[in-house]
């Protein structure tokens, strides 16, 4: 990128940027005079925070898969289904499409997010094979997709409130729904704690050295 050579960061200019409203202030200013946001050249202990939220997110994801997400009672049978069990059931009944959607939203995306955040955080410390803009894109995808994992919790909520037909059929939420929601929320907080300016610091230092 030929243009990047002339770019200067706020830190290099002896300034501190507000990540909330993009205003710049002299280094050492405590709070943004425009929006009141706390100013930090780089978020303090950003990586520790990322790892802390990341870890509780991963931990919550384990019971989310072990406990049942939904329990369904119909006239003939009553069954409890975990996330993966439910998808397998759907696939067995020929609903391959939806099984795939559920596996993507509840298994592939959460696991991918854990991996991506870990990669970004490790990349800041140990360098990364990916370029700065690639990692920035990865971070934006993680931030964008993170909220969509909540869809599974909403599906459970809708089913549990809607399918209340007395003896004919009824659905109630299982404990996994709580753990899954917590896992999604913790992972979102982990991604939000990440200061993406750290990605560029390492890349720019590398170029200068």
């Amino acid at each position: 990128m030929e243009i990047a050579g002339t770019l200067r960061t706020a830190r290099e200019m002896g300034l501190v940027a507000c990540t909330s409203c993009t205003r710049v202030w002299p280094a050492g200013t405590d709070r943004c005079g425009r929006c009141g946001h706390r100013l930090h050249t780089r978020a303090p202990m950003a990586l520790q925070r990322v790892w802390a939220w990341w870890l509780v997110g991963v931990i919550a994801y384990v019971p989310a898969n072990l406990y049942p997400m939904l329990s369904t009672r119909t006239l003939v049978a009553s069954q409890e289904a975990t996330i993966i069990g439910g998808a397998v059931d759907l696939a067995r009944h020929g609903n391959w499409g939806i099984a795939l959607v559920i596996l993507t939203a509840s298994v592939a995306i959460p696991l991918g997010k854990f991996l991506a955040i870990a990669m970004l955080a490790l990349g800041v410390r140990h360098g990364s094979a990916l370029s700065g803009s690639r990692r920035q894109q990865l971070y934006q995808v993680v931030e964008y997709i993170g909220r969509w994992s909540m869809i599974d919790v909403f599906v459970v909520a809708i089913l549990a409130s809607l399918v209340q037909l007395g003896a004919v059929a009824s659905v109630s939420p299982g404990p996994a729904s709580l753990f899954f929601a917590l896992s999604v929320i913790f992972t979102m907080l982990s991604a939000q704690s990440f200061d993406s300016r750290l990605i560029w610091d390492a890349a720019r230092e590398g170029r200068r050295a």
Binding site: R8, A10, C18, P26, W200
Partner: peptide, 19 residues
């Protein structure tokens, strides 16, 4: 200490700190 109009005319990228 140029906190006046000079800095107000600048904008910093919140993602990568470029000014």
């Amino acid at each position: 200490n140029a906190a006046g109009p000079d800095l107000a005319a600048l904008i910093a990228c919140p993602r990568c700190d470029a000014v």
